[in-house]
Simulated scan of single mutants.
Amino acid sequence: MLAPDSFKGSLTAAEVCAALEAGVLRAVPGAEVVRIPMADGGEGTLDCVGAATGGKEVLLDVEDPLGAPTTARYLLDTDRAAAVVELAAASGLPLVDPARRDPLRADTTGTGRLVADAIRRGARSVLVCVGGSASTDGGTGLLRALGFRFLSRSGAELPPGGGALAELDRIDTGGVPANVRRTRFRIACDVTNPLIGPRGAAAVFGPQKGAGPAEVRTLEHGLTRLADVLAEHTGVAVHDVPGAGAAGGTCGGMLALLGAEALPGCELVADAVGLPAALDGADLVLTGEGRIDDQSAGGKVVSLVARLAAGRGIPAVALAGQVVPPLTDLHALGLTAAFSIADGPRALADMSESASGLLAAAAEQAVRLRTA
């Protein structure tokens, strides 16, 4: 059984599966190999769910995180009146050239356009996968595209981005359509960070999006004001809710104003692709991701696969570009072993280019050890 995440910036989960299978078959020609590409709610989730469940891919012209035109896609299942939207498709950090990054102005409006289009086409259940965002806007761009208005004390609508949120005075919901109010929203979340504080969206993820120390303070102030106003408006306090800080606080805004349900992304994907049932009868499970470290046990694909395999008495081996001990928590979850695919000192770019061959070689050796 093969159930890896993608190696971000190098291989998709499906490509990782193909490389692993090549190595398995070198060790055991004729072996029955079951591929289950996985994701944790971030980039690649749409492909994994789409491959397993079908549905129609919809392309839409929307705004990128800084308002420039871009084309993004989402998945629409008309039979089930359901849609899957990947935030990174319209509001992801890779869409913004490093020279253009503006962490105070970046927002999630493009993702909101995708959600609104899905609802207009009949979706009554929308899963939003929130990994990989470029913004720290508390989800206000997404919510604005659904009819919410974020107003200053003078009654003016705030400009896009988290940098303006400190001026938020109230939220106008009068323009939210009835079909949005009737929609069930779920969030595939791959982190447990709260909205604000030292582990919050601005402090932890802001620097990754180009925010310097002063900008992080501005974003923190804005998200705190947003959380206060959300609590006043809805009675839902999201300041310290685990996961509310995901995607620059998008999860927090959706929890409060849309009544969304946040769930671990990899568990949602596992259910959608049928991973638990596919594990039955497996002799060995190979999983992996780009880097395995002490964060991998906190709801990442490797941790879920290890736990499910251990529950069935199946050994699980993880392969990664880099393995950073200690892995005590992963072993406690049931992971048998983890190995780096590096075959010697290599630059990161070289590792990325050679990842497929390195994965195949490592998989072959892991299977030979199992069958010895």
Rank of each mutant, 00 (worst) to 15 (best):
A164M: 06
G235T: 07
G132C: 08
G163C: 05
T71F: 03
L20K: 03
V16H: 02
G313D: 10
T53I: 13
P276K: 13
G299C: 10
D107G: 06
G30Y: 14
P159S: 06
G248K: 08
L359V: 03
R184P: 00
V317G: 03
G42M: 08
T70F: 03
D102I: 02
D77G: 02
G139E: 07
L93A: 11
A22G: 05
G147C: 11
A355C: 10
C17P: 02
G212P: 05
S133T: 14
D97W: 00
A89G: 15
L369P: 00
D329A: 15
G357T: 05
L219A: 12
T371S: 13
T71H: 10
P37T: 07
G155I: 04
S152E: 12
H233W: 02
V126K: 00
L359N: 10
A347M: 11
L75H: 11
L230E: 02
A203Q: 07
V367D: 09
V58F: 11
C266W: 01
C251P: 02
L143N: 04
L127M: 14
A363M: 11
D117S: 15
V317L: 10
D343W: 01
A116R: 15
A316N: 04
C251V: 15
L76V: 03
I171L: 07
G344I: 10
I119T: 05
R291H: 02
G92I: 00
G206I: 04
P160D: 12
G298Q: 09
P198G: 14
C129A: 15
G175D: 14
V96C: 05
A361E: 13
G243C: 08
T234F: 14
T192W: 09
P276G: 10
D64M: 08
I341Y: 11
S356T: 00
G139L: 09
L158C: 12
L275N: 04
A338R: 03
G206P: 01
G110R: 06
G252H: 08
E21P: 00
A203P: 00
P160S: 14
R101F: 10
P98Y: 04
A247L: 09
G67Q: 04
D283S: 15
L114H: 07
F185H: 05
L11T: 01
A116K: 05
G67I: 07
G110D: 01
A360N: 03
G132I: 02
V323C: 08
L46M: 12
S152D: 15
A237C: 13
A244M: 04
P160Y: 14
M38V: 01
M351R: 11
A262W: 02
G161C: 01
G197I: 07
V180L: 09
D97N: 14
R120Q: 11
L369F: 13
K209S: 05
R153G: 03
A337S: 15
V285Q: 01
Q322M: 05
T183N: 07
L158H: 10
L165I: 09
G344E: 07
S125Q: 12
G30A: 12
R186Y: 03
A166H: 12
L95Q: 02
L327V: 06
F148A: 12
R100V: 03
L258S: 11
R312F: 10
D293W: 12
T250P: 10
A297P: 01
P160W: 13
L76K: 03
S340K: 06
V241N: 09
E43K: 09
K8F: 04
G321D: 10
A277Q: 14
